[in-house]
Nucleic acid binder design. Structure first.
Lengths: 197, 197
DNA sequence: CATCTGACCAGACTAGCAATCTGGTCAGAT
DNA sequence: ATCTGACCAGATTGCTAGTCTGGTCAGATG
């Protein structure tokens, strides 16, 4: 595959991303993408099996963007608990800026259709749970997180917990100020609710 | 209002509940409800402003059913932390049996339309958060839950946390066995993840 | 010869209209 | 005083004709 072809592939992805983000797949024609990318319509099919595949590629790209931001925010020199808090914060910040990823929370099925939303959810759950598990193990090694909790299960649970706060904030269903919720979440996850009698 | 009228009102609600649960509002005609209830069509409007109001009444009824089960499961003689765990368990058990309430998790917009789903979510969040807050305060009084956490904020956060596990289980997105998740959730909420160095 | 293209096609989608259905009313029966 | 069902407006559905568009491939291009 020549450099020329690589260029075309990237131009197609860029053009597609731009249009899909503005109008959704349904209202974006293949021709408008190839025209914007400066190629003939047929050339798209030299690089992608179908419009759907191209669409899912842009969605995967969007999720990758978030995952990068998340990984970057979790500086390995921070203690594990702070890293978990950072993760929730960066998730909220990122989703507030990314209309495409936020679409499911706004009940916008045009921008991110059911198939794509499922893909995004799966990818994100998988990868973020991984990040948490690794952080969790680090914390256990460093002694900032107690042993005795299975990292795989704890990571899955912590993902659901953190994601719950992100979602309820983004949908406007969180009934207390976000700052209070984050502080309390952190406190509970860190020290529990028990009196430790 | 006579006893006769009260009867009719209840028969209408029962007939409506049965049909709405089977077919959803859209595919249930007012006439089929009044026929099943043994009244004339006009009589429905002596008791309910509109079909929509009747529909929402059945939804409210369904939520009340869950709230009763929840309140019952949280025996006041149990320590507060066990009560919180019972709440999550009873929520899962109830939602697994109630197709109407579970509809949003199965993406079934026929059984519970957007308006109704929003109502159910709001009612449930409001009332369950209340239950948790009261339990939380009880626990602080009894000394099983540490002071220093604001009950209102903690209740809101604990609701989102517990609900996250319920939802992820019902949608099949929970990636670890439910029993493990519940045990770990309980452990984290009770004692935190910190090593307490 | 390798690469690329756009005219072409099947079948999906839309507009628009006729026919049907149904939530809600109210004059009159009971 | 209470209840009803025939009635109506307007929403929904079914249908058809016409348009649009994802995907193909014979042939242009260099």
């Amino acid at each position: 595959m020549s450099v020329r072809q690589d260029d075309a592939r990237e131009r197609l992805l860029d053009a597609a991303t731009q249009r899909f983000r503005r109008f959704g797949t349904r209202h974006t024609s293949v021709e408008s993408i190839t025209t914007a990318a400066g190629t003939g319509k047929g050339s798209l099919y030299l690089h992608y099996q179908s419009k759907e595949e191209l669409y899912l590629a842009t969605v995967r790209h969007a999720v990758d963007g978030f995952l990068e931001a998340a990984a970057t925010a979790m500086h390995p020199d921070q203690p594990a608990p702070s890293r978990l808090r950072s993760l929730v914060e960066v998730a909220i910040a990122h989703y507030e800026r990314d209309d495409l990823l936020a679409a499911p929370f706004l009940d916008d099925r045009e921008l991110l259709d059911d198939r794509a939303a499922t893909l995004a959810r799966q990818l994100q759950r998988e990868r973020v749970t991984d990040l948490i598990r690794i952080t969790f193990i680090d914390g256990q090694r460093a002694g900032t997180i107690r042993a005795g909790l299975d990292p795989a299960v704890a990571a899955a649970v912590l993902f659901e917990i953190g994601w719950a706060i992100v979602r309820s904030h983004l949908t406007g269903e969180l009934t207390v100020p976000l700052g209070d919720a984050l502080r309390t979440l952190n406190d509970i996850v860190g020290h529990g609710t028990g009196s430790g009698h």
